[in-house]
Each structure stands twice: as C-alpha cells, then as structure tokens.
Design a protein around this nucleic acid. Structure first.
Length: 509
RNA sequence: GGUCCUGUGGCCGAGUGGCUAGGCUCAGCUCUGCAAAAGCUGCUACAGCGGUUCGAAUCCGCUCGGGACCUCCA
C-alpha cells in the first residue's frame, strides 16, 4: 500500500513528506543508551517511540535497517570540560569489576526491559568499543580536512573554523554568537582553541581504565564520534532518519552533524526526529536530577532493595512498596500509556493516568478477543474501510498514535455493538476489521495481551471448566453457588463477564 | 541571564481558523436472577487581556503560570 507519510524534521522545523531515495530501503539510526547504570523509564519512552516508527515504516512496505547503538566506552562525567571520571570506569572501580562486566550487566537488563515492553530488536546494535578503528579513521579524515587539531595526545574539533563555512547550528537553531556568549565558563579547557571545541579523541590519564592505542597515543574516543562513525559504516554517508531524545539536539547531534560534514562534506541525515521527555511531577526525569525510577519498579509497584544484585526485572530483589506507585502496571499498560501521547509532547507520570491507561488497554484487548467470535450479517452498519483509512491517515501524520488510538476505540465500539447484536457486519467487512485491528494494534503499536498471556493454557482450561459448572448452577437457579464462584474468583482478581453468548473472564492486574 | 517550547473539560491527552478526537472518572438508562461486562445518553473545555477576521481554543501582541536547553542525560 502506498502511503504518504509526513515526518516532522528538526532540520526544517516542519512536517515534510517522507521521501527515501533508496526506497524500499530505509536507514534509521537512533542514539541508544550509555550503559553505566540501568535504563530508566524515560529512556524507554524514547526507544518505544522509535520502535513505533520502525514498525510503521516496515508495515507500509519499507525495508528498514534500524541501527541503535550501545555506548560502552566510558565517557567523562563532564564531557565538555574534559574533566571528571569516566562513568563506566568509575562503576568498574567501585564494584571491582571489568568495565565490560559493567556494560554487559546493564546491556542484559536493557534488552530484557526492551523485550518486556515488546520493542522489536534493532537490525544492528553496535557497540562503540567495537568501532574504535572506525572512530580513529574518521578523526584522521577530519584532521586531514582541516576541521580538527591535535593537542597533547587529544584531538579536538575546531568549531569556529567549521562554522565559517557551514551552519554549525542547523539543528539547534542557535547562532554561533549566542553559543559563544552564553556558554558558561568551564574548567579544564586550556587545551582547546575555542570554547565550543569538543573532543574527537581524548588522551587517557594513567588511572583511566578504558583505553586504546591511536596515532595520538593511548586514549579513548570522544562521545559524539561513535554515532557518526557507526552511522556512516552501516547506513552510509547520508541516510534517511536519525533519532534520539530532544535533549541531544544542542550538543550531541549538533556535533554529530559537524563531524560528519567535516569528514565527508555532506549532511549525514535527511530527517532528524526528536522525541520529547518523560516527566515526573512536571520535571524531566533524568539520571542527573536523580528523579528516576526503574522499569521493574513501575511494573511491580515495588521498590528495588538496596542490596539487590541487579535491577534487571528477572533478577531484581524487591523490598516493599514503592512510594510513587499505588500498584504495579504491566509493561503493556505502560506501553499503551506512552502511546496515548504524541512522541513530541512531554508525558507526565501519575497513578491516575496510569490507571486510566490500564482500563483503556484492557478494553482494547477484550475487544480483540471478542472480535474472534463475532457473527456476520447481510449488511454492515459501519464503514470499516473508511475507518481503516483514518488509521493510516493518523499514522501518516507524523506517527500520531494518539489519533490512531481514538480510531481504534471507534473499532472497539463497533466490535462491541455487533457483539451485542445492536449492529451488524458483513463477512468481508469483518475480515477487514480483523485485518485492521491486527495490523494496527499488534503490528504497528506492538501491543499484546500480556496479562492474559501470563495466565497460560492451564488456567484457560480451568476457567472454562469453572465457567461451565457455574453455568449449570445458574441453569438450576442455584444462585448461591454461582455467586460464590463469582465472588471467590473476584478475590483472585478474576472477573466473570456474562453475556448472551456465554460467560467470559478477565484477569485484573 | 540567553535561546526555545508550553498552558485544553473532574483527570490524562489529540487537534484544525468555522464541521468542536479518544481514554479514564461521574450520573442516568438498556441488558441481567443480582452484579459485573457491554451499549446508549448526559456533563462540553480550550490561562488572562487586547488585536486580526464574517468567524479563533486554533493567527498576532502583551501579562501570568509551567517546562526544556545553554554542563553529562533518551
């Protein structure tokens, strides 16, 4: 199906018709996590947003190569000033582990959380430490072209020189003067010629653990160069989509553009896409502010024990109720909650909002189950094909999952009213409706009934048996027995739902 | 301080110059042995003050509030 997809491009600050010169092939790069601690739920939001884009592009026929890196090279706590300790090295020292052990531990947890949230794995998940050579080569090329200089074993990008020939602030929209005048004074900058210059390669101090040989001596790559090098390697000098959180725009992505242009002469990316932040009580959730909570805490409503060996959901040791959550929210509830908001808006966490999302999500999942047993009629009272078009229109408008969900709830209404016998649907429309729900709910939004799935086949069999016995009691007007069954099940968080078609059941989380 | 974003009904959250999403909550009704579920109906908003316009929540200006970036951060 040919879809006209519009994407908001940070470069132009407008929605643009998406055009991929190498269609059906599309290259998409997303800045992944730095693994010096566990990913928090704000990180998850960004990756979920790009998962939706990946899924939708794939759904409408593109062959997407989706690259999401893992930063495992220890960068400095104060990157710009070139001071402070390397984050991963610090963890390694504190825990008496190899840096790679630190990275592996968090990578394991990261992938597990991504899996729970039903994110598809990227096509390539490159490690910065595995691409040191590429980063060195790129740095050499930038030096050769005159946009970088070496100083005492470190290499810096010459921003002011670059800015004379190119627009350094294309992404941020900031003028060089602005940036020069408003940068705070920082320590440890004496090696740099210009205050905006940033490291492509950094000489390692004796105590620095993660270090590699280079033409400039032992050291480690600067933070920004890895994405440029890996993007170029796997997606080419110019590729279609580059994404990340919008907090990366002014520094990381701005420098990525400068490096790539400095190295190759042309803009690296056609569409820059940025997602907004997740907030807690209106404030950005971030590691540096310390107002983060972990996926496992959100999923369980419990607090991670201080002596927990890991925060990975399958390994975490929990200790008591989490002060922020009234209860746990399943990963799919969380995913649904995120999808209710457009990726470019901030999303604020609250129990009320989460509980509303949970109910809405259950309703959607129940409708999909009902869809499987719907009866057809001679005519249709709803225009399914028009609804399908609306779903595509929503996604084509810069991946508007919020409007897509509104349309899907119209489908839910149709499903339920047909099931109630108040409306009818033809066989071909029913097939179309099933296709629509499958395409958008399962494939594009990536939602699945995780609560129900966790129940398993045995439970399903037992439930059918219980429902049958209760139905027999009701047939004999033995309401004492049937109500006892219902009440006892309710204590187990199982809700029975009677209808003309029989009795269904639902698990409350 | 500089740059930029934002303020929608009880809550969350879309959105376009006129046709006024959706989810949750609440009330009533239908259905039901009772309940739940499901459906239907109702509650109808765009921070304030000006301006542009036949018409603005949507465009412009100002005021007030919230936030982000300018240091690492998704």
């Amino acid at each position: 199906m040919e879809q006209k997809l519009y994407i908001y491009n940070t470069l132009t600050r407008k929605k643009e018709l998406f055009h991929a010169p190498n269609a059906p092939h599309v290259g998409m790069y997303v800045c992944g996590p730095t693994l010096y601690s566990d990913v928090h739920i704000g990180n998850c939001r960004t990756f979920t947003s790009f998962d939706i884009m990946f899924r939708y592009l794939t759904h409408i026929g593109y062959k997407v190569r989706y690259v999401r890196n893992i930063t495992d090279v220890g960068h400095l706590e104060d990157e710009n000033a070139g001071t402070g300790e390397d984050r991963i090295g610090k963890q390694a020292r504190l825990k008496k582990l190899e840096p790679m052990e630190i990275v592996n531990r968090y990578a394991f947890g990261f992938r597990e959380v991504m899996g729970l949230l039903n994110l598809l794995p990227p096509s390539i998940e490159p490690l910065a430490s595995g691409h040191i050579i590429e980063q060195i080569e790129m740095t050499q090329e930038i030096i050769k072209r005159g946009y970088a200089y070496e100083k005492d074993g470190s290499v810096y990008f010459d921003v002011e020189k670059f800015a004379k020939e190119h627009n350094y602030g294309v992404l941020s929209g900031r003028s060089l003067e602005d940036q020069l005048n408003n940068t705070r004074d920082l320590d440890g900058q004496e090696e740099k010629k210009g205050r905006l210059d940033f490291a492509l390669w950094k000489k390692a101090k004796p105590e620095h653990i993660m270090r590699w040989n280079s033409p400039w001596g032992e050291g480690f790559p600067g933070w920004h160069i890895e994405c440029s090098a890996m993007g170029k390697k796997y997606l080419g000098e110019t590729f279609d989509i580059h994404g990340g959180g919008m907090d990366l725009i002014p520094t990381h992505h701005t420098n990525e553009v400068a490096q790539s242009v400095g190295c190759c002469g042309n803009a690296p990316v056609r569409y820059w896409v940025h997602t907004n932040m997740l907030t807690l009580n209106g404030q950005k959730m971030s590691r540096s502010l310390g107002n983060v909570f972990l996926p496992v805490e959100l999923f369980t409503g419990m607090k991670l024990a201080t002596d927990s060996p890991s925060a990975t959901p399958s390994q975490a040791k929990l200790d008591g109720k989490h002060p922020l959550f009234e209860k746990g929210y399943s990963p799919m509830t969380v995913r649904f909650f995120m999808l209710q908001t457009h990726y470019s808006s901030t999303l604020d966490f609250s129990n009320e909002a989460l509980q509303a999302a949970e109910k809405g999500f259950r309703k959607l999942m129940e409708a999909i189950r009902v869809l499987g047993k719907l009866k057809t009629g001679a005519t249709s009272t709803s225009n399914i094909s028009a609804l399908q078009q609306k779903c595509y229109d929503a996604m084509n408008d810069d991946f508007n999952t919020s409007i897509l969900l509104a349309n899907l709830f119209e489908a839910v209404r149709i499903i339920n009213t047909v099931n109630d016998g108040k409306e009818t649907i033809t066989e071909s429309d029913l097939n179309l409706l099933r296709e629509l729900m499958h395409d958008f709910v399962i494939d594009v939004l990536g939602l699945k009934d995780d609560i129900r799935e966790s129940a398993g086949d045995t439970t399903e069999g037992l439930m059918q048996l219980i429902i049958k016995m209760r139905a027999e009691a009701r047939a004999k007007k033995d309401f004492a027995t049937s109500d006892l069954v219902r009440d006892e099940l309710a204590k187990l968080n199982i809700v029975l739902k009677d209808s003309k078609e029989g009795t269904g059941w639902e698990l409350k989380s």
